[in-house]
Design a protein around this nucleic acid. Sequence first.
DNA 1: AAAAATACCGCAAACGTTTCCGAAAACGGT
DNA 2: ACCGTTTTCGGAAACGTTTGCGGTATTTTT
Lengths: 392, 392
Amino acid sequence: MMKCSKCNSPDGVQRAGFIRGRQRYFCKLCDYHFIDQKLPRTPERRSHQTTISDVAKVLGVAPSTVSRALNGHADINTNTRQAILEVARQLDYQPNLLAQSLKSSATHTIGVVIPDIERPFFATCVSGIQQVASEAGYRVMICQSKESYEMEVSNVQALIASRVDGLLICHSRETENFDHVRPAATRGVPVVHFDRVCDEVETAKVILDDWNGAYNVTEHLIEQGARRIAILAGPESLLISRNRLAGYLSALTKHRLPALPELRTHINFRPESAVAALDRWLALPEPPDAIFAINYTNAFDLLVALKERQVRVPEEIAVVGFGDEFMAAMIEPGLTTVNLHPHRIGQQAARLFLEQVEQKERFQPRTFVVSGDLIIRKSSLKGLGGVFSLDI
Amino acid sequence: MMKCSKCNSPDGVQRAGFIRGRQRYFCKLCDYHFIDQKLPRTPERRSHQTTISDVAKVLGVAPSTVSRALNGHADINTNTRQAILEVARQLDYQPNLLAQSLKSSATHTIGVVIPDIERPFFATCVSGIQQVASEAGYRVMICQSKESYEMEVSNVQALIASRVDGLLICHSRETENFDHVRPAATRGVPVVHFDRVCDEVETAKVILDDWNGAYNVTEHLIEQGARRIAILAGPESLLISRNRLAGYLSALTKHRLPALPELRTHINFRPESAVAALDRWLALPEPPDAIFAINYTNAFDLLVALKERQVRVPEEIAVVGFGDEFMAAMIEPGLTTVNLHPHRIGQQAARLFLEQVEQKERFQPRTFVVSGDLIIRKSSLKGLGGVFSLDI
DNA sequence: AAAAATACCGCAAACGTTTCCGAAAACGGT
DNA sequence: ACCGTTTTCGGAAACGTTTGCGGTATTTTT
């Protein structure tokens, strides 16, 4: 018969049902329930990681002493500290960051949400973020929304649940509701917006200087002798679209050129729409002599389509884009664009986060503007077309 | 006088030095040390997150009951469970993943180390990894080695310290020692290599089919009528370089073409070296009629240099690259390349990790080969040059 | 009616740190 | 010898979960 695991005798032991598939017993003498075979408390821990307690045990000191020694606390004797450091080195002790994070509720991790890592602009932003972050001892967790509002929200929630120390986000194109980045939703986790920002929530922001970039690029076209400058703008709802349009219009006004409505088209950035707009312009009695595409991929679409249609660039029509990528220099003719410095944008976003961590409640949300540089290549050099050598 | 905080009387209380800047007292009657003003144990917790205990307290049940209810355990009464779920919803309870991870020693995070996120190939790999990972409920932590061995090692260590569940790595160009990815160093964390793998450590690997890709692209050139096919190879030490060279040589042999030593150049992928090699070839009494650049950026360098030198592509010299990127389709003439499917590579690497997690010790490391597809564009269509329309 | 089984839930020990508080010993000045 | 001081260290609680096992009430079976 079964022996009571307390009094160690079989007297008074009776069965008492099953629990989780195992037979249970009851000792009347001891008034004690028990199971036939207990599991060992720690079943041969797989790949044991050295802990503070292990170090402490070797030296016969308390875990708290080891912790203090490792963290450079003052209250520890120099000899003790040396001994502890030595043992820790020998045992290859590595602090468990999870435990540290749980205790301190700081993960030293920042979450980044971007629409698409495959787009060079965002990849470069991430690179900038990561550089600043890793220099400050932060790790980076990256999520892609793939331009979907739902994915964006779920990414934000996942990052918050992972207890990131901060959230750097560039909204998806679909996003119109921003409740998921409000302090209530992020549980007070600092949020920094970059590139596609939103006004509804008071956060630190990094934006690029759309207005000035568009102004400069338009002015450049005018200086090249263009008088009928078309603009291939994006959706009117988009802030970047509005700002770039405004810069373009200001440059026209400044140089006393009329803003012709037939030379302004809003598209959704799709290649087909860009080509369709081009064909409408080419069919005009007086086609444009320059086109400003506010999206860099559309500028490429135009270059290709113009070549197919045997229109000489820049002599007949100059083309400028917005956003300088590797390709802009490689294509023939080289594309004149504004370098948006995505690396700087990322760096700055990360710096704003660090600032916020340091200043805590004292931090005043502010907006940092990263200005672009005009990069002149062949596609816009009407006057001097062909004279310049390839700019690679 | 100071009152003893135990017997609450000033009798027998005497000062007993300072500790951490604060006056200490000693009550002789109680044999008890104390400080003048104790800190409250929990000084108004900032932004309190709802915990299991909070939910438990509301309902007057034990935290363990709440835990079981939320995790769908069997031992909970339906009414109790409903009530707990309801309260958890009301209090917006979100489990603390840090605590869960600490307990289960599983973070549901995988670490990825790549040379450079700004390179489209790697960005796309990451995208593939992330898609598979997030579908399986894993988060992704990304590090860049920037082609530096030291950074790679420190990235690996940081990820291991963060207790990632797995490590997906593409080595830097500098890396020749692989101790940092050995099981001892990664503390048993599963490692999956992709793209740039190493033979020294027994891990799951995902590689691209360099040999076949090179073979196919070379054969394609031969079919187009090329007979003097030059190869712009990479450093001989690189595995990809050797494999692609071997594929190229096999295609030549298969078609009974001689492998001419003067048409083979090993470079370090630098644009200047590519152009220098080209100029040497053009100076030959009998220049090549096709060039296979095993690196896609070098293929672009060649196209640009050939245009500068007024050499017609593909009529005089055909050019093919390796690795299909956005640009290959955009440039004029379109570049014939092998699509390496970086997205699939990433997906497969993530899948191998998931497999390893599932099978645990039973997992047999295996190597998965992702084969490339030949993408034919204008730059190699010698026979039919100009007939095809732009492939965008 | 006693024994056995079931259903449900609580206690407490972990996971690995950090840190508040107090103890003990050593020290120094009357 | 006494008292105040300093130095150094240990105990234990806490961070928020999960989970093995035991207790109790209720139901079912002999």
